[in-house]
Amino acid sequence: MVTLAFPDRAATPAAPPIAPSAPLSALVATLASDAALIEESLADPDRFAGLFDRHADEIHRYAARRLDDVTAADDVTAETFLVAFRKRTRYDLTRSDARPWLYGIASKLISGHRRAETRRLKALARQAPERAADFEERSAERVTADGLRPALAAALAGLSSAERDLLLLVAWAELTYEEAAEALGIPIGTVRSRLSRTRTKIRRSLESHA
């Protein structure tokens, strides 16, 4: 029923380059940014649906990867955009890409579903050890949801939610350090030190399972 104007971010054509003395193309590029859409939505709330059309699939993918039930992922996605809508007046309009902001909101909501996430990680960690051995022989590219290595799942479950949020934004949502810093509202230095600490924790956890 709903026609999606922007099926996927990847499919959205890049904004045309801005010629130094071409205000019109500058305007076109500006209008195409998430920030412009959010600014328009301040006066015309309906415009905010455009942000959903652009990024809902991506946010849903991320939520579905982190939570063990698709209904929870549906809820997180719906709620992410409602929260974003309510907070849109506080959006930093100098940030043209709204994805880090949306990921930040989604991360907080996923924390609210912590039980579902922990359940997922624990269930995966409990899988028979043969599966782990099996995992070693499979190529990395073939790893699927069921193939999340139990020892690794246990390691993830052992992280604090702040560590897990950051790690998975980088590893699964493929945010850059700068974007992850923006998403979580922490300085870039904290991103680096927290990731380094997280890596050590994972390494130790894997060693203890070896």
Binding site: V2, R61, A64, W172, I202
Partner: peptide
């Protein structure tokens, strides 16, 4: 290692997506 172990995501069901929108 964690990135490679990223689970597949089930598709966003059209009904759920339409309801959210």
């Amino acid at each position: 290692l964690v990135a490679r172990a990223r689970p597949d995501a089930p598709p966003y069901a059209p009904e759920a997506k339409a309801a959210a929108r």
